[in-house]
Design a protein around this nucleic acid. Structure first.
Ligand SMILES: [Mn+2]
Ligand SMILES: [Mn+2]
Ligand SMILES: [Mn+2]
Ligand SMILES: [Mn+2]
Lengths: 247, 247
DNA sequence: TCTATTTGTTAGATTCATCTACCAATGGAG
DNA sequence: CTCCATTGGTAGATGAATCTAACAAATAGA
């Protein structure tokens, strides 16, 4: 990461310092070494030199042993990082329904590398999902419906029946274990929970990817499939959890 | 980043090497220093020691001057990184409609830090958007509709009229420049293009955030607003681009 | 077989981010 | 005014990731 260090000397770590300073000034009117160290989980011996670097870059004004002040440039940069953080955290927490902890952590890891273009598109998505009535409907439905895909009983009884029939009319749904060697399919759903689901996702078994069954062991247990050009093997219970349509 | 170096010695850079090796073996049946260096944009003098590290970690089998082979452990890890890459790139490109280049770049920067939970939720989203008929409909609508929010003429004439009326019935839409000092609003849309939009997004002016107009200069030009606890100033044309509902 | 080209290795340097272990300044409390 | 507790600063070390430049090995031509 941050391979663009030549053009942009503000590293991820420095951006995190800026964000921390920004928030501390906002919340307690001042920022000092001790609090920054605590907030970032580092020792004060690491913060001092970082402040020196930020000062040299013109992003903060730092006189030894005094409170840290953001320059206009630094404030702009800090707000930009914080904005990205907020946007991503909102997406993870409120759209994707992640746990607050994971949303915060993922957001803070990604905020530094998000492109302007991605920011722009996320905002468009939010406008659609949270302003357009149709988008709001969609978000509602997604929230109510996403359980269906994971064997967790759906609250709305009609949810499953409302969706499935339409699908099965056009495209026959089956699991990978229903395919014969030589047949191909496109993944539509990944069922299964816990370790099985985890392993499938780690292997890149997602909706939309195409797979081809290459070989099935006599007992039907390891099933070798080709996925994105690479061969992998699935246990029977893993294969059964993956729904596909024939292609 | 990668502050979790103690528990997990496989850094982002090493993961990228693994991913590169994985793809080269897939596509050309072998991986060697030269090609890896080229693919990753580094010099061969950087790759050799990295291969030594990966070998020590048991992720590849590397005998000097011979082709590089992934161990089962390394292959698993590589596939996991690649899976994350694919998932994010798909999201950026096909859902958010980003340019292929930016989608690829953002995905490759983020793939290392994405949590398992985020993976899981992304997959649920894809299942909804690409399997459920309702999800598919609404993805369609989003694609057609997202233009509306950005002053780009919409292809479907009825798109705007289909959405707006319903909104205005319940919630009065106005721009920030219509607010009086002391009044508050919640952002619903960020219009405007180019530099104006960019600056608004950099400052964290997104849908859903609450703003309060604190002060308006005589000429109406700088408008000071409070946003997430911090005061910022907007030009008149920036303020005019931000749609809000009163709160 | 001998040489030229390609490919990979090594050593040494740089930059960043962090640590630890001291040391220094500051500001109350008495 | 002195002393101690809090706070911040410095030096030196570590480890990751990279570079450059010189070198070595392997391969391919002639
Ligand atoms: Mn961060
Ligand atoms: Mn952050
Ligand atoms: Mn990457
Ligand atoms: Mn990648």
């Amino acid at each position: 990461m941050n391979s663009a260090r030549k053009e942009n000397p503000v590293t991820d770590a420095l951006e995190d310092y800026l964000e921390t300073i920004y928030l501390q000034i906002r919340d307690q009117k001042f920022a000092r070494i001790k609090d920054i160290a605590k907030a970032r989980g580092v020792k004060s011996g690491s913060v001092s030199p970082a402040m020196k670097r930020l000062d040299e870059l013109g992003l903060i004004k730092y006189v030894k042993r005094e409170y840290i002040v953001l320059t206009p440039e630094g404030e702009k940069r800090a707000r930009r990082v914080f904005a990205r953080h907020q946007l991503l955290e909102h997406f993870f927490k409120d759209i994707l329904n992640m746990s607050p902890g994971a949303a915060q952590k993922d957001a803070c890891a990604m905020e530094h590398n998000l492109s302007d273009e991605a920011m722009d598109r996320f905002v468009r998505l939010f406008e659609f999902l949270e302003v357009c009535p149709e988008g709001r409907d969609l978000l509602e439905k997604f929230r109510g419906c996403s359980r269906v895909h994971h064997d967790i009983p759906c609250m709305k009884e009609d949810c499953k029946s409302a969706h499935r029939p339409e699908i099965s009319e056009e495209e026959q749904q089956m699991s990978i274990s229903d395919l014969q060697p030589g047949q191909s399919g496109r993944v539509t759903q990944v069922n299964g929970q816990g370790a099985i689901r985890q392993r499938l996702l780690d292997m890149g078994v997602f909706p939309r990817v195409e797979i081809e069954v290459e070989r099935v062991a006599p007992a039907g247990d390891p099933i070798w499939i080709k996925l994105q050009g690479y061969q992998i093997s699935l246990r029977q219970n893993e294969a059964a959890a993956v729904m596909v349509t024939r292609v």
